[in-house]
Amino acid sequence: MIHIVDYKAGNITSVQRALNFLGVESVITADSDSIRRAEKVIFPGVGQAASAMKALRERGLDQALRDAFARGIPILGICLGAQIVLTRSEEGGTDCVDLLPGECKRFAFSDPALKIPHIGWNRVRLVRDHPMLRGMGPEDEFYFDHSYYPLPEDPARILAECEYGITFPAVIGSANLIAVQFHPEKSGPAGLRILTNFAGWNGTEKAE
């Protein structure tokens, strides 16, 4: 059973719809004790870092996520959920959940042809093997929709990259945490494969 963290940040039901389609059981919850005791957690979200952190703190979900992470259970962060697992975000100078040391940065381009947000399909290049990224091909594209990107302090935490004006981390991970900047639930078969991998992942970086 996968617990999907509900903190009123965007359309989290689309993650559950994709899991239903794959035949993977899930439950959407805003209850911090349920997250603390969960076997597996998906931390989705779209929107703003500051309001998201406020909503998490009000429900004690930030501490519940830290406790769940410390227990070693598999955690998947998606989009905003992939950003606010870091220490802080440039978006409103926000202190975040801090499962992984690093900062969330805003895109800054002088070329007006580079639109912000980065919206659409883009290729993701694997930089390190990981069981969660098994089956990913060099031509696979994923759906992005964001103005900020996660930058871990330790470059070894970057598992896959994407090019948009700059090279930025598209997938980061540390131990039992994996975080994807794109939307696997909106990225067609390539995205669904990541959710399938998560359903079977034991939370270690070694292949089972």
């Binding site: 389609f21 759906y143 909106k186 990225s187 067609g188």
Partner: peptide
């Protein structure tokens, strides 16, 4: 549509 189409 949302139950079977996984693109935006």
């Amino acid at each position: 549509v949302a139950a079977q189409v996984f693109i935006p």
